[in-house]
Design a protein around this nucleic acid. Structure first.
Lengths: 329, 329
DNA sequence: GGTAATTCTGTAACCGATTAAAATAAATCA
DNA sequence: TGATTTATTTTAATCGGTTACAGAATTACC
């Protein structure tokens, strides 16, 4: 490969100890006399030694590698999640192999298989297609961690977010603004987060004695936002406000509005969900519910380090939605 | 870790051969008698064997792992690049460890060190801060591949894109639209791509016997687009068209325009560069020059597989810009 | 001071592959 | 058919760590 790296044997020789001792100094589990330890550390520094991962994995039967399956990694939603996981795990001196599902169920399955074959110590799955049951099955093969969802058997393997409260909050805001005819474009309702946001929406309306103007089921993509907005504008009885279950669909919708000369929020108010990075630069900027994905991803990684490797990072396991008021509603 | 996986020894026993033979069947370099080979393959299937990566790495002194350093992975620009690299390498049965630079020079350096310590076989660097000289240095420690740039000593290690032609194309389009007062907000001019785009812009103006109205140096961020747009609007002598060196800055600028009631393209035309996914959903949708990042990233990965592992993927090493006309100009 | 308990360190067996070198089997040729 | 060549397979060393076990050095205690 490249210039030969120094090995544990060289360190041992230089420090005048056996390689077992060096290994102990490194791992820190068995006690080593202070004087010996510092001699070893010096040798390590002198040789700028760093242990060979392959050898270490082979001997310990751990890969120190975590697999991250993301439905895609090239979108505004998954990027921060991947980023948060990566940062935290690198801090814990583990590394992350990312495998993208390339936006399909088959792709996600391939990614999972690939990573398990690579013998990762654990998986972080941020999926768009895998069902909870399937995740449960995967979890039997390799410990799985998820964020913003759950799966049977993974009760202590997830970081949760109160999507219900978020849906309620978004809708309540529209109600507070005086809207009576509120519609919602949800995500795929078989998905936990999408469904909870929808239920939260209903709850808020009910409490205000309002009826949901109507509901459409989208798929979280910009295209789906466009299509649905299009069809909404063709209706006789337009809503005065729409709650889109994520910002991406809201972006698609805003685009359609702009094209058709519909003023937002004057003609129709639009609220999104997620608070993507780009949402604030949109015109109009998007009023939304913040889902702190990056922080949640970080927390997931810490949870994983604690649970799989016996680390002791302090944990925050539940995150709450936050209303971000901007121009679109 | 998990249920014990089958080993090469088990396969060998089941097939009635030595493990060396199994290894050969797998690697395919030394010939194996057909009859033996099929017996081995059967055994492999029966045990659903897949080789232990750690053992393989240790013995062969290769990790079959590529490190991907991206300045960030949570933005619209780097996402597709990371995705393209990942997909191609996974197809080549290698895996990718991603390390994000978290948007700083220090971070990028850390990421590089981390990956080299992990003994990756090669690095793909998509940087925002590392200088060509520094990349050159890194290349001495571990083979480096880059896209949309070069570095001394890396002449056959990059996939190139004609940024000059792109800058010219963008500017020419504005000229063709009849604009006389054309300004540009460039990227950091020490960066090769930013500088080339700028030169291309100048060339086009020169050929049309026009003077550049003025030039400002941005840093490719949305914020920088906003700030510069702000200052442009405060000028006495506003340009009628602006060429932003990337879409992200253009987005920031559009946001400012919308806030200030400036009509795009009527009052000021804006053209971007990159053609990010989101650019078409903006209002107005962004006229831009397409930089096929995903494809280029894929090509980079193939180049790497050929060069580092002796694969023979067909290669496309140069990509060309393409004008995407939308609403903003 | 002697023995037991405790702390520290070394020995050596693994982990599961790759790969040179040696051994064997099969094919070719006179 | 026996000697050569050539094709195939096995043997065994090796990669660089971890870790159970045993031995040595210290410390504690009577």
């Amino acid at each position: 490969m490249k210039k030969t790296m120094s090995t544990i044997n060289q360190v041992a020789t230089l420090a005048g100890v056996s390689k077992a001792t060096v290994s102990r100094v490194l791992s820190g589990v068995t006690p080593v006399k202070d004087e010996t330890k510092s001699r070893v550390l010096e040798a390590i520094k002198a040789l700028s030694y760093s242990p060979n991962q392959a050898a270490r994995s082979l001997a310990s039967n751990k890969t120190y590698t975590i697999g991250l399956v993301a439905s895609r990694i090239d979108t505004a939603y998954y990027g921060p999640a991947a980023s948060g996981v990566e940062k935290a795990l690198r801090g814990g001196d583990r590394h992350v192999i990312i495998a993208s599902g390339n936006g399909s169920l088959e792709g996600e399955r391939d990614a999972v298989d690939f990573l398990i074959k690579r013998q990762v110590d654990a998986l972080v799955i941020i999926t768009n297609f895998l069902s909870e049951e399937e995740i449960s099955q995967i979890n039997l093969r390799c410990p799985v961690f998820v964020l913003n969802q759950t799966f049977p058997g993974g009760e202590d393997r997830h970081i949760s977010f109160d999507n219900f409260a978020g849906g309620e909050m978004a809708t309540q805001y529209l109600i507070d603004k005086g809207h009576k005819k509120i519609a919602t474009v949800t995500g795929p309702l078989w998905k936990h987060d999408a469904y909870q946001r929808y239920l939260g929406c209903q709850k808020a309306l009910q409490q205000a004695d309002l009826a949901l103007h109507f509901q459409l089921e989208g798929n979280f993509s910009a295209n789906s936002g466009m299509t649905h907005m299009q069809s909404i504008l063709e209706r006789e009885d337009r809503p005065t406000a729409i709650f889109f279950a994520n910002d991406i669909m809201a972006m698609g919708a805003l685009h359609v509005c702009a094209e058709q000369g519909i003023k937002v929020p004057e003609d129709i108010a639009i609220i999104g969900f997620d608070d993507l990075d780009m949402s604030k630069y949109y015109s109009p900027s998007i009023t939304t519910i913040k889902l702190p994905l990056y922080d949640m991803a970080e927390a997931t990684a810490y949870l994983l380090l604690n649970s799989v490797y016996g680390a002791h990072f302090p944990l925050k396991t539940t995150f709450s939605p936050e209303l971000i008021v901007r121009q679109s509603a």
